[in-house]
């Protein structure tokens, strides 16, 4: 697929450049909130909203923002949308708000969002940035949903809170250790299906965002 096409900008977040499973960004919410499938989806969609909005605004302002203060500007835009999401969820979906807890505010420091702002939105058109944000966010949501579903089914014997009457459950899966275990297995499966090989040598060529990265083009 043509890497410059709009469809690629949207779809690359799902598998090829999946922020969680391939780029291994945003590990903190990935491990912390995925004890239930519904929490994973809630967190994923909240992040998608912030990612989409911040990508749009940063892309629109990319010619106005001076290079020297770009990072503070990005952070202000991102935290504004995070706080908006926090207010809106608190008012309209309080149950989800209380379950996500501190991790909702911590979307502000989720490196996926700043990463996309810096690597993509600050260099691409508004439409492409919006598609990139949407794709990355939904890719993140899918990864969190997969994690949450596996952990909820194996650890609690439930799926979306519905009891599955499993003969055996492993409570270790809802605990932090089970989170690492599940994440490792899911990453391994994604690597298997995308036929990717672990990089033999760590360098720019092995980086999944090599095509977007400015440092890479400069030879860094």
């Amino acid at each position: 697929m043509d890497k410059k096409s709009n469809i690629y900008a949207l779809l690359k977040g799902f598998v090829v450049e999946n922020p969680t499973l391939v780029m291994l960004l945003g590990m903190c919410p990935t491990l912390a909130v995925t004890t239930m499938a519904s929490n994973g989806i809630g967190m994923g969609l909240a992040t998608t909203f912030v990612l989409l909005c911040s990508n749009i605004v940063i892309s629109a302002l990319r010619k106005v923002i001076p290079g020297t203060v770009r990072l503070p500007c990005f952070i202000v835009v991102i935290t504004t949308f995070v706080t908006l999401t926090d207010f809106i969820l608190k008012a309209y979906i309080p149950a989800l708000h209380s379950r996500l807890g501190i991790f909702l505010s911590l979307i502000a420091v989720n490196c996926i969002i700043l990463g996309r702002a810096e690597a993509f939105a600050s260099k691409n058109s508004l439409l492409r940035s919006a598609l990139d944000g949407l794709g990355m966010g939904l890719g993140f949501t899918c990864a969190l949903f997969a994690m949450g579903a596996v952990r909820e089914i194996l650890g609690s014997g439930q799926f979306f809170g519905i009891d599955l009457h499993l003969p055996l459950v492993f409570p270790i899966f809802v605990m932090p250790a089970g989170g690492f275990f599940t994440l490792g297995i899911i990453i391994a499966v994604v690597y298997k299906f995308t036929k990717r090989k672990p990089p033999a040598k760590v360098g720019c060529a092995a980086c999944p965002i090599a095509s977007d990265c400015i440092n890479c083009k400069e030879g860094g």
Partner: peptide, 20 residues
């Protein structure tokens, strides 16, 4: 530029906070 972005953000947040 940073000041303007911060001011716009703050105004937006005040508005949404009052609303929700």
């Amino acid at each position: 530029t940073l000041l303007i972005i911060c001011a716009v953000s703050a105004l937006l947040l005040v508005f949404v906070h009052d609303l929700t």
